[in-house]
Design a protein around this nucleic acid. Structure first.
Lengths: 331, 331
DNA sequence: CTGAAAGCGCTAACAA
DNA sequence: TTGTTAGCGCTTTCAG
């Protein structure tokens, strides 16, 4: 029952009658070395069930083969698609991926990043809460890519909700709504800013007054206050910062016996898990989250000088579209 | 703009005028060494912003400081609580945690585990799809803890749904239901087996006939077939393998214009995100998922011989309870 | 193309 | 208690 010593590169080398360095090359330098010996070595490695020790590889090569994905809250379904996408892509690139929950705290986010920078080749920040300053400084220590956050000089992927917001306003206007209010998320949220700007622009285009209520916290529980505020505003329709908040709002509306969409139309953002089966099913902005995840890893690979990466674009903008369900109707 | 060489243990040692090994001890062996020098060294390390290179630590100590959590599908909200719990606990224990998606494939699960075993101190398998044989063999190569899966000899945490199932049946019986059907998940699922057994037992206790329909796949999309099968069975109530399936079923029922709970009462399992805001809100079995995650890490720490771990229990059984919402009513 | 040798940063015997 | 000395398993010069 003694654990047998794991097989090392030396075992393979001995068995093949070559030097360890030759094995190293045969295994991890595609084009080089004699093809015949390389195949022989690979066969032996497979036969011996050799698995390279990644710590040792990292220590001597400087590349850890690991990236991190930082999210503000693992249990926020908004990240589902992004997580999927990054995992797909990093698996395809042979990278390990660590998922880190920053608990919505910029301090924790920074600490984690600093503490782990030595064991990571790079990191993807999905909805970073860090200040622009902090981000730029950290980017000097470890390759960074952001998602839904645009910082000068940092490669980023943004799901372009402004585009979708315009569609949403169009949709509401065509249903006869003239009084549309934006339900704001946290002031510090980059996405919230972007969405509010888009809202204003779209409203102006249609000659509507632009108003907002809030700011409200991201969570479902803020929906209560949000619903009351919207009702109070007298608007006939609202566009909500995100689906979590929108679903909370719907719940409160049901409690108060307010008909949706009869008395109030509601549009969410993100099309998260649940948006299609809440009551009523939510009209919302859908975006290619998985694709965003994949794109982020691609950009990171680019930053790492990986040849497998596509041409390094600095910023990727992904389109959103409106998914109409049952929470919107005639004014 | 050249990256400054990261500070190593030698830099700290030089600055403190001691040997590297002394620094190593001062930093990672709590009780030993002269407290005065230890504090001095720690101060210098902090001042120099020294971060130990975990690869090097791993290489020379054999401990990687990393564990993995394997789930069949990251985007299944059932894992929310578990992920939270394990992350909390591993962070508290100073361990890094990798989240791995096995895509519901036993082969992939095994491969990942084998491939990563050298870079992990241990792994937690949430709903493993591996055979008992495979699990036992793998456990010989890397410390393993299972969640919701009981395998002889492996430490495990199980959320005891049988207990909750009994409550559910009790609830339905007291509402006057005499014809209750179990909507089965995949035959190979350990939880499904456990729930079906519990169902039979509870039904027998009340002198009811026990029937089931299915098996159905885990996903929401299987809800359509499941709903039709339940309706066909003529039962007035059903207990569904999991909430995902139950929500799918609810959707189909609404499509077919079947009143819930008027014509059919529905009970789910797991109380996932969404169970409270679907339509109608789902009566379901709630369990302490976060606690399960924490317990799993504790057990693993025990297996690793970590002194911080509580007394090593081999199996942890966590209770569930019925959360009554609006999908159940009088027969 | 391949081998020899040095060393990545750290920990763990062993000596002092 | 502290310093000295070997490696951990791999990659990477540099020779051959």
């Amino acid at each position: 029952m003694t654990a047998p010593r794991p097989v090392t590169i030396n075992d393979v080398a001995a068995r093949a009658g070559v030097a360890p360095s030759t094995v190293s090359r045969a295994l991890s330098e595609p084009g080089r070395g004699n093809p015949a010996t390389r195949e022989r070595i690979r066969a032996i490695a497979r036969e011996l069930n050799y698995v390279p020790n990644s710590q040792a590889q990292a220590l001597s090569s400087g590349r850890t083969g690991t990236i991190a994905l930082l999210v503000s809250d693992v249990t926020n379904p908004f990240y589902f698609g992004i997580i999927r996408g990054t995992q797909q892509m990093s698996k395809a690139a042979g990278l390990a991926e660590v998922l880190i929950d920053t608990e919505d705290s910029p301090d924790l986010e920074g600490d984690m990043l600093r503490k782990m920078r030595r064991s990571l080749d790079g990191a993807i920040l999905a909805s970073s809460r860090l200040s622009e300053r902090a981000l730029i400084r950290l980017a000097g220590e470890i390759p960074l890519v952001t998602i839904n956050r645009n910082v000068r000089g940092l490669p980023s992927v943004v799901i372009d909700s402004p585009d979708g917001i315009a569609q949403a306003v169009e949709h509401l206007v065509s249903l006869g709504h003239r009084d549309i209010v934006y339900v704001s998320g946290p002031e510090t949220s980059w996405s919230n800013q972007a969405r509010w700007h888009a809202m204003r622009k779209a409203a102006a285009k249609h000659g509507l007054e632009f108003r907002r209520v809030g700011p409200f916290a991201r969570g479902r529980s803020s929906g209560t206050a949000a619903a009351d505020a919207v009702l109070n505003s007298g608007a006939t329709a609202c566009v909500v910062f995100n689906d979590l908040l929108a679903i909370g709002l719907l719940t409160r509306l049901a409690e108060r016996g307010v008909a949706v969409p009869g008395r109030l139309s509601v549009v969410g953002c993100d099309d998260i898990f649940g948006a299609d089966f809440c009551h009523p099913p939510l009209t919302t902005l859908s975006g290619p989250a998985e694709q965003a995840g994949r794109a982020a890893v691609s950009l990171l690979l680019g930053r790492l000088g990986d040849p497998r990466a596509p041409a390094a674009r600095r910023a990727v903008l992904l389109p959103t579209h409106l998914t109409v369900r049952e929470s919107t109707g005639p004014a």
